[in-house]
Structure formats: structure tokens, C-alpha cells
Amino acid sequence: MPPLNRNLQQLVTIAQKPEKLIIGLMSGTSLDGLDIALCRFTGNGFDTRFKLLNFTTVPYTDNFKQDIKQVFAQKQVDLEKLCLLNAQIGSLHADMILQALKDWNINRSNIDVIASHGQTIYHAPQRLHQLTDYPNATLQIGDGDHIAVKTGVLTISDFRQKHIAAGGEGAPLALYGDVLLGSDAQLNRILLNIGGIANLTWLPANQTDIICTDVGPGNTLIDAACRQYFNQPYDDGGRIALSGKVNELLLDALLNYPFFTEAAPKTTGPELFSSTYVQQAQANADAQNITAPDLIATLSALTAEAIVRFIKTQLPTGCDQLLLSGGGAKNQFVSTYLQKAFPNVAVADTSLIGLDADAKEAILFALLANEALCGEPVVIGQNPAVLMGKFSFSL
């Protein structure tokens, strides 16, 4: 038998290492920047152990954000721009990784793998596009080969496509990491991530009937209103929302939308929860002249109330802990709303169980890369039991 080529031999060597250093990358629909998490992993599956060694978020420039917005969550885009951004994002993310390693005084040769989520630009589950001849689909750009070649590190990317190919909607992929890292044999937990979209994982102590699903908008509508009316990228700490008053008629109009009554699991994105959605609700509620603080308070209440209604109507009773992550975990309006709705539940962030609330999603993609290297598909209810990610070699 001929020897393995250098790339395949390297892959085998890394997969067999008892301990791996993996960089997880996450850039969400909020378009605020790139999360970079350096993690040490041992084991796999339910025997996985990890430690977060370093974490940073590298903000995107305003010009870069505008570039992405030209192709983000739109049915019609400039195809050349899309093509160029696929390469540019991969190259930019590689530069950000190299700078982070320099700042941390870590040699790139010590890194075994980079796990790149890429930048989602369009999410199209069949429930949204409603074209019966077409399947679920999603698209993340930021080519993994560019990252691998520029950093010299094996890169695993494009995780969502396998999930779709196996019958899923490509999201939320948090399910796999939440189950492996967040389960507890004594406690019923909800792990709630509030990024651009809010998604949660129900983790009962008996580990049966686990549910992972999107539940509605997270920060996407709040952030858009902050940019439009206050020239701010987001509502820091929920301060603007706390200064306003919720318009109950508008909140009812926003919640009177088919997505909220659809059965889980389900996925969504800014393609659905857009400025058009808000404007239609304002027209239905005769709330076109609402003040900016009141609008942001109402959109924040929408985020929280959608979560509350889902938990109360579609999850079993008996939750012990509601653990938050993502940017929305720092929004005091939202977290206070949740605590009032569930007075007997411990509402905290995921650092309570050793998962940094800011780094959690980047950690989860690092975990998916670890599973792709040395794991086996994990059966979790009716969810696709697959190993995800495409491998890009540096040579």
C-alpha cells in the first residue's frame, strides 16, 4: 500500500492526539465582528473535556460591514460581489487569527485545527422559501481554503451543509455542543443563546425529548433600530429599552405572526425578521409615530416574550436553570423580563456551567471540529446524527 500523502498523514496524526488545540470562529448575523476562541480538547462525545485558553472578539470595520450588507439576507445580490467576499472574508479571518495568536504569544505551529463557521448571508429553510421543488438551504461564505493556506493550519468549515443534507435545516447547531457540554443528570436546563436570532436547547435531566430550536428574533431588530435612531450598533445593557415604554398593541401585532405558532424544531433569520416585518406590524397597530425609545423597548419585549411563550407552551414544566449566552445575555431589559416570567427558575449566564457566555458559540464550533476529527455521530432524538465540516489542508 502506498504511503499517505503529507496532508492525510497530518490529519491522522492530529486525529489521534489525546489533546488538541482548536481555534473556534464565529461571526453571527449581528455582523459585529469575529469571535476567536482558543480551546484545549481531550476526549470526544460525552467524554469531551475542554478548557477555554484565550478569547477575543475582533470588531469589523464599518466599511467591511457595509460590504457584507450588500449581499446579506437579500434575494437578489451582485454575484461578483458575493464571489469576491467569499475569498475576502476567508483571508480577513485568517489575518485576524494570526494577529490574535501574536497578541497571545502563541506560535501558529502549536494550533492543531481551526474551526470556521463562516459568515451567514442567507438562510432559506423550506418553511420560509415555500418552494416545494427545492430543499432546505443555507449559505455561509468565507472560504476555508483561504484560512488554511494563509495560516498554515488545517481548517474545518462549512458545518451546516451536512446537517441539511441529512434532513435538517442547518440550524441551530448549538444542539450538539449543548448536549455534550451542558447536560446534567440532576437538573433540567434551558441553554438560551440570544444572538441575532434567539435559539434554545431544552436539556432535561433524563436526557430524553431534548429540543433545540430557534424561537424568534434575538438582537437583530433591536440592533437595527439602534443604528437607525441612535447611530449606535446595539442597545448597551438594554439602557435604551429601559428608558422607554412597551407599546402593547405593537407587541401584540409583532407576535401575531405565523412563525411563533409553528411547531419546533424550526429555524429563521433576518430574512424573515426584517424592517418590513416591523413596518407591517406598526401599520397594523397604528404605531407609526412611536418614539424611538418606546420602539426599542417594544422590540426588546418581543425578543423576551417570544422566548417566554415558547417555553411556557412548548416545553415541559420543571425547568431548574435558564442559562443565557450571546450578546443578549447582557441586555438587562431582556434578562429581567425573563426572570419575572420565571420567578422560580435560576436565570443566569452560561459561565455558571463553565461556558463563557460571549465565547460559547465559537467554543461550540471548535467542539464540532473535534468531533469531526475523532468522534462518532451522536444520536439525539430525531436530529441528524452526523459529523459536520469540510476539511481544508494548508498545502
Rank of each mutant, 00 (worst) to 15 (best):
54 N>Y: 13
60 Y>D: 06
69 K>A: 11
28 G>Q: 03
122 Y>D: 07
86 N>V: 01
112 D>E: 10
88 Q>I: 00
96 M>N: 08
37 A>C: 06
118 G>F: 01
96 M>E: 08
38 L>C: 07
121 I>R: 00
63 N>R: 14
80 E>Q: 15
110 N>S: 15
39 C>W: 02
119 Q>P: 00
89 I>M: 03
32 D>V: 05
59 P>C: 11
45 G>Y: 04
47 D>I: 03
107 N>V: 13
42 T>P: 06
58 V>E: 09
92 L>G: 00
114 I>H: 04
36 I>K: 07
126 Q>H: 12
48 T>Q: 04
58 V>N: 06
62 D>Y: 10
93 H>I: 03
75 K>M: 15
30 S>T: 10
128 L>Q: 12
119 Q>T: 05
108 R>F: 10
104 W>E: 10
105 N>Q: 14
100 A>S: 09
28 G>T: 02
113 V>R: 13
42 T>S: 12
92 L>E: 02
124 A>D: 10
49 R>S: 14
118 G>R: 05
66 Q>K: 15
69 K>P: 08
126 Q>M: 01
92 L>K: 10
125 P>N: 01
106 I>V: 08
74 Q>W: 02
107 N>R: 15
27 S>Y: 07
121 I>A: 08
74 Q>C: 01
104 W>R: 09
64 F>G: 05
91 S>Q: 12
72 F>Q: 05
85 L>Q: 00
52 L>M: 00
108 R>M: 12
55 F>S: 06
51 K>G: 12
111 I>E: 02
66 Q>E: 12
92 L>Q: 00
54 N>C: 13
61 T>N: 09
59 P>Q: 12
105 N>S: 15
68 I>S: 11
88 Q>A: 11
67 D>Y: 13
71 V>S: 07
97 I>S: 00
77 V>E: 05
122 Y>R: 13
50 F>P: 08
32 D>Q: 03
32 D>E: 02
78 D>G: 00
84 L>Q: 15
78 D>W: 06
88 Q>G: 03
49 R>Y: 02
70 Q>P: 04
123 H>W: 04
109 S>K: 14
123 H>K: 03
65 K>M: 01
71 V>T: 06
120 T>D: 07
27 S>M: 04
99 Q>M: 09
88 Q>M: 11
94 A>G: 07
66 Q>W: 09
105 N>M: 12
86 N>I: 07
58 V>Y: 07
27 S>T: 03
34 L>W: 09
57 T>R: 13
58 V>I: 09
70 Q>S: 13
107 N>A: 15
63 N>G: 14
59 P>I: 01
105 N>A: 15
85 L>A: 02
86 N>R: 01
124 A>Y: 11
86 N>K: 05
110 N>T: 15
35 D>H: 10
100 A>C: 00
58 V>M: 10
100 A>I: 00
74 Q>K: 05
124 A>V: 06
50 F>H: 04
68 I>C: 11
101 L>P: 02
48 T>S: 08
42 T>I: 13
87 A>P: 03
110 N>F: 15
64 F>A: 10
120 T>Y: 07
96 M>K: 05
85 L>K: 02
62 D>N: 13
81 K>V: 01
109 S>A: 15
